[in-house]
Each structure stands twice: as C-alpha cells, then as structure tokens.
C-alpha cells in the first residue's frame, strides 16, 4: 500500500507487466495442459491397448532416443533429409533462375514441368527403389525428385517478377553478370524462393519418412513401422512424438532463417500497407 502511494505509476506498471506475462503463460500452456490431461485421463480409463498413458510414452521416449538408437536411426534420417533438401534447393534455384530469365526456354519446358510437378512425389518411392536400390542414395533421390518442383516453380515466378524499374536502374549503374544475379535477381526473388523452400521442407520430411517406411533397414520411419508391426505401442508413440518434434523444430529453424533473409520484405510490406 505504502509503495503504491509513493510510486503509483511504476508500481502499477510493473504489476501490469507481470499480469501480462502471466496471461501470456496461461495462453501458451492452458490448452496443451488440458489436452494432455484429457488424453491421460481417457487413456488411463480406457482398456484400449493402442493408447498408452503419457508416462509410459515418456518413459519409452527417454529409453529409446537417449540411447545409441538416436545415432543409429535418427541421425541418418536427418542426414538424408538435409542432403535431399540441400540438393533440391540448389538445383531448384539454379534451374529456376535459368528458366525465369528466358521466356523461350520457359515456354519450351512449361507443359513438361506442369506434368512433372503434378506427380505426387510419394509414387516416386517405388520407382527410385527400382532405379537405385534401397540405400541412402535412393532416399536422397526420392527427396530431391519430390522437393525440387516447388523450389523451381517458385524461383521462376520470383525471377520473372523482378521489377523492371529496378532492372533498368541496375543496368544504368553497370551492375551486370553475377553481381546482378546476386544483388538483384536472387534477392528480389527471395520471398518466392523462401516460400518454395518452406513447402519443400515439409515435403522433404514426408518423403524421408515414407521412403524409410516403404523400404529400409534403418531410420526413424523404419523404426516407427517396426514398433507398430511388433506391437511395441509405447515405443511407436515415442517415435511419433519424436517425428512431430523433428517437424516442429525444423519448421521453427526455418522460420528463424526466413526472418533473417526476409526481414526487409516484411518491413516493406508493412510500410506499403501503412501508406
């Protein structure tokens, strides 16, 4: 009370900020806590074999993934994912720039590309097994053959949309060749390129998992299917949770990267909207 009378404004401000932080915590945690609680309650009271209680899943999770299995199953999967995603990104952006810069080349390839990108990537898994066996190169190939299209097509769009006034400005100031590509074309196409990469990332995770589920002797997808087939249900759930976490973490990392690359773009858009 006395503190309130001496410094009412700071006191109430501190109080308000504490209250705001409290509300925030409640906003973030309430629903997840409720959902987990609900699941715990229903799984404890159900005799379904398929829904183990959260503590069983947690125990299986710790036991499984805090062991050498992490190195045997998870790391190889992530390595394939990274390799496939990186190759798709380089290939997609490279070819996209080529196609985007030339109207004729684009017209030549457009119908073929339209068809190739419409093929649902998972059907390439059996094909790649035929072509490349069931080793790592097959999985990377599967990821690349599915992920390259969104990157490629978005890059083409981005490159085509380079502002003509900006292109003229660059020409006037003698900005040509690779510098032009680096400071003008790729940068101004970066919002579309990032959008393509974001799609490719989601697709890459799916393709990694199903290529391992379909035919493999190691990897996260393989492990999950193994658990399911041997009815190791808590372990299966632990695998699903890990897969969910991988998806969440990768997408968060991507958003961070995107924030860095596209900070200017967000600001520009906000400025345009404000006007």
């Amino acid at each position: 009370m006395s503190s309130q009378s001496t410094a009412p404004s700071t006191g109430s401000r501190a109080g308000a900020s504490v209250r705001r932080a409290g509300t925030k915590v409640v906003h973030v945690l309430l629903l997840p806590a409720l959902l987990i609680g609900l699941y715990a309650y229903s799984s404890a009271n159900s005799d379904s074999y398929y829904t183990p209680t959260p503590d069983l899943i947690a125990a299986a999770f710790v036991e499984l993934w805090f062991s050498e299995r992490f190195f045997a199953d998870v790391l190889p999967s992530l390595a394939r994912l990274a390799a496939g995603f990186a190759v798709s990104a380089v290939l997609g952006v490279g070819l996209g720039v080529l196609l985007g810069l030339s109207t004729r080349v684009r017209a030549l390839f457009e119908p073929v590309l339209e068809f190739l990108r419409a093929i649902p990537p998972p059907v390439l898994v059996p094909l790649m097994i035929l072509l490349a066996g069931i080793d790592d190169s097959m999985k990377v190939l599967v990821i690349v053959s599915g992920c390259v299209w969104p990157v490629l097509l978005n890059t083409v769009e981005g490159v085509r949309a380079v502002d003509p006034v900006l292109a003229d400005t660059a020409r006037c100031y003698g900005i040509t060749g690779t510098t032009r590509l680096r400071v003008l074309v790729l940068r101004s196409a970066s919002p579309q390129i990032m959008a393509g990469l974001r799609l490719a990332l989601a697709l890459a995770i799916i393709l990694m998992v199903i290529s391992e589920m379909f035919a493999s002797s190691s990897g996260l997808g393989f492990a999950i299917v193994q658990f399911q087939r041997t009815f190791a249900i808590p372990e299966m759930w632990a695998g699903m949770v890990l897969l969910g976490l991988v998806g969440f973490v990768l997408s968060t990392l991507f958003e961070l990267a995107e924030g860095r690359v596209l900070g200017w773009y967000r600001g520009l858009r906000a400025a345009n909207r404000g006007e």
Binding site: D163, L166, C172, Y173, G174, L184, W264, Y265
Partner: peptide, 26 residues
C-alpha cells in the same frame, strides 16, 4: 539516371548506404 518511381528503383533489401555504395563497388 534517377527514375520517377523512387520506391521501385531502390534495392529494398539494402540499407540506404549500401544502395548508394553498390554502383561504386561495381
């Protein structure tokens, strides 16, 4: 050349300084 469309003739992803400096680098 200075164009009419100022908003479209500047590199939105570069600072003011970098915009001025770029042609000099080239």
């Amino acid at each position: 050349v200075v164009f009419q469309e100022y908003g479209r003739s500047l590199f939105a992803w570069m600072s003011v300084r970098a915009n001025v400096e770029l042609p000099l680098k080239e």
